[in-house]
């Protein structure tokens, strides 16, 4: 197998990518899509954000301190939790805290398994391994959690009559909402399971493509990709389960009845 190693992109070569932005800009201008301003702003932001993160990561990899890695991972969890709950409109449910706890616990558990049992870097707390792995897990769990949370509240709100009927038979909160919870978990886990089906056939995932571009043997890259796919599936499942496990009880009052914001359709 030939291995060319990574082909560096020079400043000039990087500047050439402006051609691609111009192409998108021309489409917008020609069809009067009104996207030109957003496109320019987006391009500038993407360039600055990625450059900063590039320098930041290089700095963190150099320091490679366990506490620093942990702090960064917690910050990543906070940002992901905020993003996952941004659209959830349930004032009394504290979805941010719940999402943060479930994202942190599930992503940490899965990344510990992946890093310490499968990749086994030395030293074990290598920032170069932990942060990208954790980021990939988090990004996918975040999507799963966001879908599951949204689905759970929608399901419960649209089935309050059924849930209250069950409560009137003496059902526990869990018995009353378990059907809605199952649907929410399915909604959270389906996208990652679907992506397991088509990976390599429809898309070559970004991580694998990146490794191949960086000169890695494709046979080695697919091994990594397989690990990444299953770790994403595991963390989405665990994250959704934790999230629902912590938050379903919050939809009920101390009298084990649905809270007011869950039974809006009644009043």
């Amino acid at each position: 197998m030939m291995n060319y190693g990574i082909i560096p992109i020079s400043h000039l070569q990087l500047a050439m990518s402006i051609i691609l932005v111009l192409m998108a800009g021309l489409v917008s201008a020609f069809l009067k899509l009104g996207l030109l301003k957003s496109l320019i702003w987006g391009t500038i932001r993407a360039f600055i954000q990625l450059s900063l993160i590039g320098y930041l990561l290089a700095y963190i990899f150099q320091i490679n301190h366990f506490i620093l890695i942990l702090l960064i991972m917690l910050l990543m969890c906070y940002i992901a939790a905020r993003e996952a709950t941004r659209r959830v409109n349930v004032p009394t449910q504290e979805p941010l805290l719940v999402s943060f706890l479930s994202l942190t616990a599930s992503s940490l558990l899965v990344s510990v398994i992946v890093v310490t049992l499968i990749i086994t870097p030395r030293p074990w707390y290598s920032a170069q391994i932990w942060i990208p792995i954790f980021g990939m897990i988090l990004g996918n769990s975040m999507n799963g959690i966001s879908l599951a949370l949204d689905r759970m509240y929608n399901e419960v709100r649209s089935h309050t009559a059924e849930i209250e009927a069950l409560l009137c038979f003496g059902a526990s909160p869990w018995e009353a909402v378990k059907n809605s919870v199952r649907k929410a978990l399915r909604a959270g886990m389906t996208p990652t399971i679907n992506s397991l089906m088509v990976v390599g056939l429809v898309t070559l995932p970004g991580m694998m493509t990146g490794q191949i571009l960086a000169g890695a043997d494709p046979r080695e890259a697919v091994r990594y990709q397989f690990v990444v796919m299953v770790m994403i599936t595991a963390s989405a499942a665990l994250g959704c389960l934790l999230l629902i496990g912590i938050s379903y009880r919050k939809m009920f009052t101390e009298d084990l009845a649905l809270t007011e914001d869950m039974r809006q359709s009644h009043n």
Binding site: A161, E164, C168, G170, S172, D255, L256, A257
Partner: peptide, 13 residues
């Protein structure tokens, strides 16, 4: 306990 209550004092909408 509310569960026991609702099973005995039963509401039918």
């Amino acid at each position: 306990p509310p569960r026991y209550w609702r099973r005995k004092i039963h509401y039918l909408p």
